[in-house]
Write a protein that binds this DNA or RNA. Structure first.
Length: 953
RNA sequence: GCGCGGUUAGCUCAGUGGUAGAGCAUUACCUUGACACGGUAGGGGUCGGAGGUUCGAAACCUCCACCGCGCACCA
């Protein structure tokens, strides 16, 4: 790493290392490996889709989990692929066809149209895959799958045939959710209820048998009146019960003769007599509830709406041919003309919308294929609900069924060499965490309730779609015969069902169909069930729940052990990202501008578990700034030269001192011990956060350690050594820096794969590692472990050094305050005098001097401060800034007085507590001691500040 | 109607019983020998409201308000 640029430039670095990883096959999973397995299947993005911020969030998390698992010594399979996304893709190609050739798919015919879709897929299918590569995703691309691959299609057909033979799949004429724009049936999950402003129309109808009696009916859909075949009242309703069995005259179509418009008044419990007028018009062909009433009363069905949402001839002359919404207005006019319109009042109700086309669903009777969901009881039972085995004790029995394939909650002390070199510290295979054997855990767990509720109330799944792009239903018909099978039946005259299957009917097989099922492949044996699934809660029913059922039905086991539900990415104002709003930044643009590492880090830092993420480009900027900081910290290390006494040349790699030296424990300064202890704490915090899927906590911990502890204090303190002349001490400090950096870079690797790989090699930390332990790539370097007691004992890493060094830094902070009080510019060098309370090492004196940016620090135990000299008091001694005349004494006095007020108020707070006998008697001893200590500390501060004030005179 | 989240600094959010935190923004000063994508120091909060439990509540309980989401749904 020669001639390091001042600012980190991600562009060249990122492409270089991604190519390297691919060439070296670093992402390829080996089913024969002896290592424990870790696996994830990607939620397959739409094959014609483009990367958006949701993908960034989701796939960064999967990449972090995968990379961490590799460093934990797992054999990792992250299996990628794409989804054919039936409606979305078909619509996209249809639009293009319309635009470029002014043709519809019907103009081309099915076969030709499908050729066009495949052509589109060939042309655009790689886009999102390449975008994922830009993001750094470590997927095993040799196993990339597409839901329309021949082998995958075979799985879908096989599953259909099996379920058909079991009687779980059946065909029937039922009311379905019909999208008039896409002209296909949809599942219940694809219908979105939206409140709509409209009108409640009241119109009156004459009772045929009692011409003086008129009933008033309330409806929001007067255009369906021609399809009414009864009116219903509640048999318990005293207003109307006596009319049951009589008839009313249906007002539309107006032109029909009266006797053709007589429809019965029926009694049905479904009618709520509190609502509306208590009289319900029944349209069995165009309303689900009405269909049920119609079935109960054997009512005839009159279809008045076409598949495209227009009215047909049965709706009557003026309405026929009109769109349903236009027809509504005309129907109102017709009723008004007849003088039967009583009133129309504004009304808001919920209307089901097609999620795809964003138009109101039309309930419609049609012949469709349905699935009775399989394996429901197992699927319900396997997901841990709240308060059920929630937090396993650290390191206890939480291992996943596949043995060691889970994740760590505790730390194994082994593998920590007492000999401290930069890249040492082998990571133990972590004991499992996550779900209990045979159980699955959702993160955050509250989604388990949502899942359970859905599973409790599911209806059969409408799986047929009136589309062309998708898996065609493997059923053939001839006259009255039906054949369901993997192959077309022999003989003449068979025609295949023209429908295709719901896309989710193929993606629910994803976790095992991608691994070679139904063959018992090595991949399946090694990697199924998968370890983690990372996805959005918006597809918990569509995909997650159905995968679980398929897992039990076809593999006899759950498909994954943990499901992490991400939040939804929103813009700064909290709005969902959408193309129409134009508030969705293009991740590729962000990567070009800031680097993929920056995008990943920024996203992770602002994405707490279970909360939606309000995306702000500032976050990415923060990520870039952080990478730059990391870069420059390493640059600083490089500029200090080799750790050995003599600079080693590149031809002498046997002299490991080029990169790092052994740490000599007797030469460790308090600052060294301080940073090593802080590193130890950071390793713990980051590891724990990752094991709990708390990615924002992990990044925050790393950020704090590296920026606020390592850079702000340790690096600055080190300059005391580097600016000195003690070469042995310099070498030792460099060895400590190398140790800390080589660990830190590894901790950052899952988050920042590119810059860490660059630094790992550039700093030379790779060179003394075995090839499969980080020598080739940091990807396989062992994840750092917290230090064990032997290690700490050997290097004298006692917690007292934390306190001691904190006190030193506190003194520095207070000393800097004096400059400000004196209005001394930051750049101006001044002389401080220090009156030590105990022995002060030359090293510490030098550190204090440097951190104070002082011209000099005179250490003088007998210093007689002139009146008016600003001072700070500390356990270590008194620090003076003797600048007579330059100090604004009054201002400093004001500051100190303010300080005194604050101290006194803190003292009285604690004293009050301690004076309360209830408190002192009931509180745990540790808390009591802590309060007493706090009081003592504040009192010492009070004394110090008082002295400072007096010294000012 | 049922259920789930949320309400803490100007903004975005951490903080599950013991001294209110971070990043951004902001103010002042500084291009000093890793970094201006930087440094140093500062200002800024009665933790949505009301009760309760407790020696002690931002945190636990009850109720309320507002924001968001999911499920169900009456024409």
């Amino acid at each position: 790493m020669s001639e390091i640029p001042k600012a980190y430039e991600p562009q060249s670095v990122e492409d270089k290392w991604y190519d390297f990883w691919l060439k070296q096959g670093c992402f390829t999973a080996d089913p024969q490996s002896a290592k424990p397995a870790y696996s994830i299947v990607i939620p397959p993005p739409n094959v014609t889709g483009m990367l958006h911020m949701g993908h960034v969030l989701n796939n960064t998390i999967q990449d972090i989990l995968s990379r961490k698992a590799r460093m934990d010594g797992k054999e990792v399979l992250w299996l990628p692929g794409t989804d054919h996304a039936g409606i979305a893709t078909q619509v996209m190609v249809e639009k293009q066809l319309k635009k470029e050739e002014k043709k519809s798919r019907h103009d081309l015919g099915r076969e030709e149209f499908l050729k066009r879709v495949w052509a589109w897929k060939e042309k655009h299918g790689d886009i999102i895959i390449n975008q994922l590569k830009k993001l750094g995703c470590s997927c095993d691309w040799t196993r990339e799958r597409f839901t329309m691959d021949p082998e995958y299609s075979r799985c879908v057909q096989k599953v259909f045939v099996e379920l058909y033979k079991k009687g779980l799949i059946y065909r029937g004429k039922r009311m379905v959710n019909w999208c008039p724009v896409s002209q296909t049936a949809l599942s219940d999950e694809e219908v979105e209820m939206k409140p709509q402003k409209g009108f409640m129309y009241h119109f009156k109808v004459q009772v045929a048998e009692a011409p003086d009696t008129w009933l008033t009916i309330a409806t929001t859909r007067p255009e369906t009146i021609p399809g009414d075949t009864a009116v219903a009242v509640n048999p318990k309703d005293p207003r109307y019960a006596h009319l049951i069995g009589q008839h009313i005259v249906r007002p539309l179509p107006a032109e029909l003769p009266r006797e053709q418009k007589l429809i019965p008044i029926i009694g049905d419990e479904h009618v709520d007599f509190e609502f509306g007028t208590g009289v319900l018009k029944v349209t069995p062909a165009h309303d689900k509830a009405d269909f049920d009433i119609g079935t109960r009363h054997k009512l005839p069905l009159i279809e008045v709406i076409n598949a495209d949402g227009s009215m047909n001839v049965l709706a009557g002359g003026p309405l026929a041919g009109l769109d349903r919404f236009k027809a509504r207005k005309v129907a109102v006019e017709l009723l008004t003309e007849q003088g039967v319109m009583v009133e129309e009042k504004p009304y808001e109700n919920n209307v089901g919308f097609s999620q795809r086309a964003d138009v109101p669903i039309e309930p419609r009777l049609s012949e469709q294929w349905f699935l009775k969901y399989p394996a429901v009881p197992e699927s319900k039972a396997c997901v841990e609900q709240d308060g059920f085995g929630s937090t396993p004790a650290p390191g206890v029995g939480a291992s996943a069924p596949a043995g060691d394939s889970g994740r760590a909650t505790s730390f194994d002390a082994h593998g920590q060499s007492a000999r401290l070199t930069a890249a040492d510290g082998a990571s133990a295979a972590a004991p499992g965490a996550g779900a209990l054997p045979g159980k699955m855990r959702f993160h955050p767990q509250r989604w388990a309730k949502v899942y359970d509720h859905w599973l409790t109330n599911i209806q059969d799944w409408c799986i047929s779609r009136q589309l062309w792009w998708g898996h065609r239903i493997p059923v053939w018909y001839r006259n009255g015969e039906v054949h369901c099978g993997l192959e077309a039946p022999s003989g003449e005259g068979w025609t295949q069902d023209s429908d295709v299957l719901d896309t989710w009917f193929s993606s629910w097989l994803w976790p095992f169909a991608t691994m070679g099922w139904p063959e018992p492949t090595d991949t399946l044996k090694k990697f199924y069930p998968t370890t983690d699934l990372v996805t959005g809660p918006d597809i918990i029913f569509f995909w997650v729940a159905r995968m679980i059922m398929a897992g039990y039905e076809f593999m006899g086991d759950l498909p994954f052990q943990n499901v992490y539900f991400t939040g939804i990415i929103r813009d700064k104002q909290g709005r969902k990202m959408s193309k129409t709003l134009g508030n969705s930044p293009d991740p590729l643009v962000l990567i070009a501008q800031y680097g993929a590492d920056a995008l990943r880090f920024g996203t992770m830092r602002s994405a707490p578990l279970g909360q939606d993420v309000l995306f702000d480009e500032k976050d990415v900027e923060l990520g870039r700034n952080f990478c730059n900081k990391l870069w420059n910290a390493c640059r600083f290390r490089q500029m200090q030269g080799s750790a050995g006494a003599s600079p080693a040349s590149e031809d002498a790699p046997s002299e490991q001192f080029e990169i790092q030296g052994e740490i000599e424990r007797t030469l460790l300064t308090p600052d060294d011990k301080w940073i090593l202890l802080k590193l130890d704490a950071a390793i713990r915090e980051v590891s724990i956060a990752l094991n709990e899927y708390k990615f924002s906590e992990a990044t925050a911990a790393l950020y704090k350690f590296f920026w606020s502890e390592y850079c702000d204090w340790y690096v600055e303190a080190c300059k005391a050594v580097f600016f000195g002349t003690d070469t042995k001490q310099k070498a030792n400090t460099l060895a400590v820096i190398d140790f800390v950096l080589s660990h830190t870079i590894r901790l950052f690797h899952p988050f920042l794969p590119f810059i860490t790989e660059e630094l790992w090699h550039g700093m030379g930390y790779a060179t003394d590692m075995p090839d499969n332990q980080g020598g080739k790539t940091i990807m396989n370097a062992p994840w750092p472990l917290p230090f064990d007691d032997d290690f700490k004992g050997h290097y004298g890493l006692d917690d007292c050094y934390l306190e001691m060094t904190d006190t030193k830094y506190e003194l520095v902070r207070n000393g800097r305050d004096l400059r400000r009080a004196g209005n001394i510019q930051a750049a101006k060098k001044v002389k401080y005098v220090f009156k030590p309370a105990q022995h002060l090492t030359p090293h510490d004196a030098e550190v204090i001097k440097l951190l104070l940016n002082a011209e000099a620090l005179e250490v003088n135990a007998d210093y007689p401060p002139p009146k008016g000299t600003p001072t700070v008091q500390s356990k270590l001694g008194e620090l003076f800034l003797p600048l007579e005349g330059l100090i604004d004494v009054a201002a400093e006095k004001t500051r100190l007085t303010k300080e005194l007020d604050k101290i006194q108020s803190e003292i009285s707070k604690v004293e009050q507590k301690l004076a309360n006998p209830n408190f002192t008697q009931k509180v745990p001893p540790a808390v009591l001691a802590e309060h007493e200590q706090r009081l003592a500390d504040w009192k010492a501060k009070l004394a110090h500040t008082q002295v400072s004030l007096e010294t000012l005179g």
